[in-house]
């Protein structure tokens, strides 16, 4: 199919390239290309291709780049990392430098290990608190009168629409040593000296629970609302007390909602950056802050990338669980 290219091989390099381009143009040139599109691309394919390519370029490829850079060495240049593949001696020798040093550094340094452990702990405790506060709320909304339900739901969602950053910032004013909570407690006479509330673990828990509570309540509500209440009546008829009926019927049935709510809180909370920066301790950072510091303050892009990859690996299982839940939820909605 490429007679031109074949004929021109003995002539000079430039000519050869020209021939190749001609052949390529004939094969894939504009005319052929538009013909191909007309013949093979229906509107459906275009509808799929546009978001698919966008997400591939701006969501998948970036991860591959992070993965690649996590194996590089830091270098004083822009960009500040060494390439993995390098042509030395004018393209005669390909040198690959696959460097596991960044991972070895992270996994042997106590600072990183304790930061990871602390982030996981904060996320787990906050998720549990969210569940303990959110479950009774979702339950109360699901069992309230149908007209009240949409009002309550709107009240739950409304704070979510107002700036997350400003709502976290509001807690600074509440928790400060001379803040609203301390002033109120002092005025009432419950305490004599102000409590240290801000820049503590407690403040971070409050901030995360406060910001992510709607994400816990909404999937729980969606689940609880669908329950068949005649099951509870049957249990009561058979002599089960309400609390036992709840433990044996409602709670097991709501497990998918609990799992979804917990994942929606836990996964982003592990990498949370804003809340610990505004409310948290100065002596114990979370992993999102370490990543950002490595990147911006130390300009160590390879180590920052390696931190991101380790964080991603730790979250891979919860993210896959969430994906499965999301798929099942949509299939249920279709029926």
């Amino acid at each position: 199919m490429m007679p031109n290219a074949g004929n021109r091989v003995p002539q000079g390099l430039a000519d050869d390239r020209l021939g190749l381009w001609q052949a390529l143009l004939q094969q894939f040139g504009l005319q052929r290309w538009s013909q191909y599109v007309r013949q093979h691309w229906s509107g459906q394919r275009l509808v799929v291709a546009v978001p698919w390519l966008w997400l591939f370029l701006f969501f998948v490829v970036p991860f591959l780049i992070v993965f690649k850079i996590s194996f590089s060495e830091i270098r004083l240049a822009m960009p500040p990392y060494a390439p993995l593949f390098e042509w030395l001696e004018e393209g005669k020798r390909l040198v690959t430098t696959l460097n596991l040093g960044n991972y070895a550094f992270i996994l042997s340094d106590n600072l990183y290990i304790s930061t990871f452990a602390y982030s996981l702990k904060v996320a787990a405790v906050s998720t549990l608190l969210c569940l303990l506060i959110g479950y009774p709320m979702a339950y109360a909304i699901a069992r309230s009168a149908p007209t009240a339900r949409s009002l309550f739901l709107m009240l739950i969602i409304l704070p979510f629409w107002t700036s997350f950053l400003l709502r976290v910032y509001a807690w600074v004013g509440l928790l400060k040593t001379d803040g609203v909570i301390n002033n109120t407690l002092l005025a009432v006479g419950l305490i004599d000296t102000p409590l240290t509330l801000l820049y503590t673990d407690f403040a971070v828990y409050i901030g995360i629970v406060y910001s992510y509570l709607p994400f816990m309540i909404l999937p729980l509500y969606a689940n609880l609302e669908k329950h068949d209440l005649t099951l509870l009546e049957a249990a009561a008829d058979l002599g089960a007390r309400p609390f036992k009926a709840f433990l044996r019927i409602t709670l097991p049935l709501s497990v998918p909602g609990i799992v979804a709510g917990c994942l929606l809180v836990f996964i982003p909370a592990v990498g949370e950056f804003v809340i610990p920066s505004l409310l948290g301790r100065a002596d114990q950072l979370m992993i999102g802050r370490i990543l950002s510091d490595e990147f911006f303050a130390n300009r160590d892009w390879p180590v920052a990338s390696a931190v991101a990859i380790v964080m991603l690996l730790a979250l891979l299982l919860p993210i896959m669980l969430f994906q499965r839940y999301q798929r099942r939820e949509l299939e249920a909605a279709k029926r």
Binding site: P51, W52, L55, V66, I267, P268, S292, A308, Q323, Q326
Partner: peptide, 26 residues
């Protein structure tokens, strides 16, 4: 693949998304 790419960003920690996009742009 499309289903995965549209649900993963919902829970992805923002620092990871931010870092990876910046490295892509560079």
């Amino acid at each position: 693949m499309l289903a995965t790419m549209t649900t993963a960003p919902l829970v992805m920690p923002e620092v990871i998304t931010g870092l990876s996009l910046l490295l892509l742009f560079v």
